[in-house]
Design a binder for these strands. Sequence first.
DNA 1: TTGTTATTTCGCAAAACAACGAAATATATT
DNA 2: AATATATTTCGTTGTTTTGCGAAATAACAA
Lengths: 104, 104
Amino acid sequence: MGNKVNISDEVVEMAKLAKAMGHPVRLYILQKLSQMNACCYSGDLVDELPVGRSTLSQHLKELKYAGLIQGEIEPPYIKYCLNKENWENAKSMFHRLFDESETI
Amino acid sequence: MGNKVNISDEVVEMAKLAKAMGHPVRLYILQKLSQMNACCYSGDLVDELPVGRSTLSQHLKELKYAGLIQGEIEPPYIKYCLNKENWENAKSMFHRLFDESETI
DNA sequence: TTGTTATTTCGCAAAACAACGAAATATATT
DNA sequence: AATATATTTCGTTGTTTTGCGAAATAACAA
């Protein structure tokens, strides 16, 4: 009894993605970037979002850490875009999760 | 300038769902429940997951709070299942997010 | 009533998160 | 060299999360 299962790497990885998506500001950014393959600058975001520069920077850092976005230096700006490969991967993981629930 | 946007209710709601999914134990539970419309008992889970009873209970509480699962009292057990309506809603929100990124 | 089983709530400690302003960095311009 | 712009890092503060064991609850059985 009590044979502990070990949680699969996929579940751990997906939980990390979900956690990164689990804040309104971060999800807003992802939504924005996912629309028509847009990219944006930290300065654009700080103008439209109700958080300060340093706070926004932290959120961007977390999205980067989770692998969902990437920043290209484009002096004097940093251009942020989705990390497409990882985004596609995230998409298929969430797809799998929700499609397993299909009533057959 | 700096006309702050207000983050839509949908984004706030979806962030709440993502947050609830953002822990390996909770995601494991959701995955399990989503497979073939299964339900389970807290006792089953505590046997297979590497957390104590009270900790597991907290995780179940959070999933309930987010609306993703529901518990039916079935003495002496409590049977946990997905909250199908909200699960379908979550599914379509995540779908929308990821499908906006389609390269057209 | 006393005990048993399944689960939750409480109280606590440690860690992580969210937010801010000030200072630092990096790159261009004067 | 000094200044300006865009962004990040640092230090701090208050809040939330995660985890545990002990005690509480709820339903049933002896």
